Computed example of a mutant assay.
Amino acid sequence: MTSTASPTREKHAGRGPGRRGRGARRGLAWRLWHRCLRSGTFRTLGPFVPVVALWWLLAALEVFPESFFVGPPAVVDRLGELVEKGILPGYLSDSLTRLSYGVGFGLLIGLPLGFAVAMSRWVRRALWPILLFFQAVADIAWLPIVIVWFGFSLTTVTFVLVYTIVFPLMLSVVAGVEQVPGELVRAARSLGAGRLRVFLEVIVPGALPSVAGGIRTGLGYGWRALVAAEIIVGTSGVGFMMFDARRVGDVSQVFLGMVVLGTLWYALDALILAPFERATVERWGMVRAMEADG
């Protein structure tokens, strides 16, 4: 019995350290992975690593002709050239200027109209069919007639941007006002608050999370509409740069334009829009939680 059991024990004893070593390595790998996941830089740039790697590999293997598909090195070289010549900064400045005009006028028009439709039964009955009708008409469909009205000007691009932003924003305002608990409105009125105070201290904060989501969505639509308008009617801007590069067959500049557009929107959304929306949702969530506890 002793001679039979001894090899078995020796066999398991020999496996033990190896298994413990593999387990330790797996544990270390998991700890490193979780540490990377807690890193903001890794969460931001990590998802793009396989995309860029695949892009680079396809270009290196010449799966597509170089005249149709270029890799990251060619795009980086083109970026350096356009920045050194001042072309890209100028085009980028023009696009951001147009976007700021469109967003500013869109907010000035969309927010008051949205609250007017949401708060007034008569305004809603009068404007709701019109709102739904124009929401269904694409912004690009306006370009032919707007070009006739205003020509190839900043006004044309601004009109398209405002049109694109206003209607999603108005719908989000209406949805946000409808989500405000009626108990809070009645409680404020029972405490002697007037209509203006109820609107400013109950309705607006309650609708703000939905408004923040509408602003985020509207700006996303507006960013795409800006690029389309610059391609069709622009004489400068990132969209025009891409279209002009297509005309001369400069594929690297087209790829560069797409990278610039995606990077700018990602930065705008991550640094401004998403934190604003998250902060308003968390604040209203706290109010709702307090209401439920009460």
Rank of each mutant, 00 (worst) to 15 (best):
A207T: 00
R31I: 10
R19G: 02
G114T: 00
S190P: 02
R31Q: 12
G46S: 10
R25W: 00
F276E: 08
R121P: 03
G239P: 06
K85Y: 00
G234V: 03
V160F: 08
P144Y: 01
V166E: 07
P168M: 13
V70T: 15
R186G: 13
F255D: 03
T8W: 14
A212P: 14
A5Q: 08
K85C: 02
V52A: 06
R125L: 14
G220N: 04
S95G: 15
A187V: 14
V177T: 02
P47H: 12
G90I: 15
A175R: 14
I145N: 13
V137K: 14
G214N: 14
T155N: 02
F134W: 15
L58Q: 12
P181T: 07
P72K: 00
A225S: 13
I215V: 15
Y101H: 09
A5L: 04
A267C: 13
T41F: 05
R197E: 15
G23S: 03
F240E: 05
A175G: 08
R98I: 14
V51S: 13
P72F: 00
W149Q: 08
W265K: 07
L79A: 09
V117F: 09
P47L: 08
F64C: 09
A292D: 10
R216K: 12
E10N: 06
G192E: 00
Y91M: 11
G214R: 14
E282M: 11
W122I: 09
A274Y: 10
R124T: 04
I145M: 12
F240P: 04
R121G: 04
S3F: 02
L161C: 02
T44P: 10
A118G: 05
E81V: 01
L107S: 03
G114N: 04
P50W: 00
T41S: 00
A116S: 08
F105Y: 08
P205F: 08
R197Y: 10
G80V: 07
A5G: 07
L273H: 10
G21Y: 01
L256S: 02
A60G: 08
Y91H: 15
I87M: 03
R38E: 15
M290T: 15
I145D: 13
S100G: 15
T217C: 09
T280H: 02
I87Q: 01
R9M: 11
Q253V: 04
R121W: 07
R35Y: 03
A289H: 13
A5S: 03
L108R: 11
K11M: 14
V202G: 01
D269C: 05
T2E: 09
A74D: 06
T158Q: 09
L99Q: 10
R15L: 15
L111C: 10
G249A: 09
Q135Y: 15
G237Q: 11
E201N: 11
G106K: 08
L143K: 07
V148N: 08
